[in-house]
Simulated scan of single mutants.
Amino acid sequence: MDHTSRIARSRADKVFDLCNYTLLSVILLIVLYPLYFIVISSFSEPTAVNSGSVTFFPKGFTLEGYRIILQNNDVWRGYANTILYTILNVALSLAIMIPGGYALSRKELVGRNFIMMLLVFTMFFSGGMIPTYMIVKNLGMIDTIWALFVPTAASAYNVIVVRTFFQSSLPEEMLESAKVDGCSMFRFFFKMAVPLSAPIIAVMALFTAVSQWNSFFSALIYLQSSDLYPLQLILRSILISSQMSANGADAIVDPESIVEAQRYAELIKYALIMVASVPVLALYPFLQRFFVKGMMIGSVKG
């Protein structure tokens, strides 16, 4: 009887596992196919892309879309600007969020519950775009690089996640032992807390870098000089320009030129997505281990 029940359970488990793997495989295909389609479309002939004949494999392999984009000097300037803005934003955000989260994790901080209430309040209510613009303008940051990341340098959600990480990773006994040995609070933070917080630092750096890399709305509002445009805003301008050319909305009057522009409009669009996404995709594998660990700590213990 026991042997039969064990066989029955084993078969049921196999069926259950098969159903799980099948469902997860379907979900994986649904998620990955749009990304795969963008990749193969960016390498396919414009005619095949526009006709909808590109489904699983590139048709008429070509690098024309990438050539058109990468020959544009504005794209390289946008890359340099975005890399600079991302580095500065990550450095400033970590300099604010890591000490802030650590301070809020200490029970001896007077008024920490009130500060946490204010942080949570800002997650639900904000001044809005117009008051924010007026503050940035009054601070003299319009048409400067500082307007792109100083107003959003610290995220309330990220500070809460950092605080949760320190609460769950740094036991009180460690701080008490350090105090007995004559270690000050500042020395404990820099010598012990920061080295042990590599996972959450990696997570916050990745969050901030991806957000800054994909940001274009702040630049659209605050920047006036095209020399300061980040990559996303330049790619947006290229995409709008190509679509206008395809629709004959610019100075093009030659029908053959309009047809040619229409052929390459979709190809340029997919190539733009790849140009903007590849750096972030290349960075993620190096931070994946820290990213998963830090996110699990923040979600389970929060």
Rank of each mutant, 00 (worst) to 15 (best):
residue 10 S to Y: 14
residue 10 S to T: 04
residue 17 D to I: 11
residue 22 T to C: 15
residue 26 V to E: 06
residue 26 V to L: 14
residue 27 I to W: 06
residue 35 L to C: 15
residue 37 F to Q: 09
residue 37 F to H: 13
residue 38 I to A: 14
residue 40 I to M: 01
residue 41 S to R: 09
residue 54 V to A: 03
residue 55 T to D: 02
residue 58 P to G: 15
residue 66 Y to T: 13
residue 70 L to C: 02
residue 70 L to H: 01
residue 73 N to D: 14
residue 73 N to G: 13
residue 74 D to W: 12
residue 74 D to A: 15
residue 79 Y to M: 13
residue 80 A to Q: 10
residue 81 N to I: 00
residue 89 N to Y: 06
residue 93 S to W: 03
residue 96 I to K: 06
residue 101 G to L: 02
residue 103 A to L: 12
residue 112 R to E: 06
residue 114 F to P: 08
residue 120 V to W: 00
residue 124 F to S: 11
residue 132 T to I: 07
residue 133 Y to M: 05
residue 135 I to H: 00
residue 139 L to N: 03
residue 140 G to V: 02
residue 142 I to T: 01
residue 143 D to K: 05
residue 155 S to E: 05
residue 164 T to I: 05
residue 167 Q to F: 00
residue 168 S to C: 01
residue 171 P to D: 02
residue 172 E to Y: 04
residue 177 S to G: 09
residue 182 G to V: 07
residue 184 S to K: 10
residue 186 F to V: 01
residue 187 R to S: 03
residue 191 K to H: 03
residue 196 L to I: 04
residue 201 I to K: 08
residue 201 I to Q: 01
residue 206 L to C: 11
residue 218 S to N: 15
residue 222 Y to M: 04
residue 224 Q to V: 05
residue 228 L to N: 09
residue 230 P to N: 06
residue 235 L to K: 09
residue 235 L to N: 04
residue 241 S to C: 02
residue 242 S to C: 08
residue 245 S to M: 13
residue 247 N to R: 13
residue 254 D to W: 11
residue 255 P to F: 03
residue 255 P to C: 06
residue 255 P to L: 06
residue 256 E to K: 14
residue 261 A to P: 06
residue 262 Q to V: 10
residue 264 Y to R: 11
residue 271 A to P: 08
residue 274 M to T: 04
residue 275 V to R: 07
residue 276 A to I: 09
residue 276 A to G: 12
residue 282 A to M: 12
residue 288 Q to W: 02
residue 290 F to K: 01
residue 294 G to L: 02
residue 295 M to G: 06
residue 296 M to T: 14
residue 296 M to Y: 04
residue 296 M to N: 12
